[in-house]
Amino acid sequence: MSDEMEYQGEVVKRFMYVNRKAPYGTIYALENLETVLIAAAFDQDVSVVFVDDGVYQLKKGQDTKGIGMKNFSPTFRALNDYDVEKLYVEKESLEARGLTAEELVVPVEVVGTEELREIMAQQDVVLSC
């Protein structure tokens, strides 16, 4: 729970970002991703979870030219450069939408509901969007 680790004299907390919304229809996915990058820059222990329609954010082959919006899906591939390595996708959400891990823009860990429940319970700060 909140057993905070000391890291170079600074407090490190476990931040979990839970993405539940599809991209483009609303701005939440994009602005949430901005927060993930900032949290990583603060050397926090960041994990990013995709459940429900959030899994659509990772769909390969996004082409936004026709809607005039920026395709931000390549940014998920850059998360690794920010030391954000814990990306979880809920298996049930993926299957419910007829998707497989091979159709996602970035390698993720596909976890079942039970496991995700455990991971979520270990966090210090949870930000769902």
Binding site: M1, S2, V18, R20, Y28, M120, Q123, D124, V125, V126, S128, C129
Partner: peptide
């Protein structure tokens, strides 16, 4: 509760 999670 140590953590609050808002399901938005």
């Amino acid at each position: 509760h140590e953590v609050t999670n808002a399901w938005l």
